[in-house]
Amino acid sequence: MARFLLFSIVIISTFGLGSWAYKINYESRAASQRVKGLENAILLANQEIKILKAEWATLNNPERLRKLVEYYFLELRLSPINPDDFISFSQIQWDKDKEQAHTASVGESLAAIEYDR
């Protein structure tokens, strides 16, 4: 009886471990394939990103932009940045009325919030 039990345990555990090892092996191969697939997908995506970035860089080539600016000058009136474009803070023309109106509206909104409370 004991011998039967012993053999049964050995046989069952051998088959059990065997099928477990087979399952693990199978799963790990499948995972490995999946990883390979993902890696390739990442590489392809990276290559696409690279191409798009290169295309973007080509489209933004300063020489190309300069030609476009010249071509569309009548419509866009774009001109190179000039030292005259810099002005000091005190030179900014403030629209006093608008500024006051804005302050007033902010004040009113604040008052309304206070009222709601």
Binding site: Q47, K50, I51, K53, A57, N60
Partner: peptide, 9 residues
């Protein structure tokens, strides 16, 4: 960060 040279496939 503007690209000056890159590798393409």
């Amino acid at each position: 960060g503007y690209i000056l040279a890159t590798n393409l496939q």
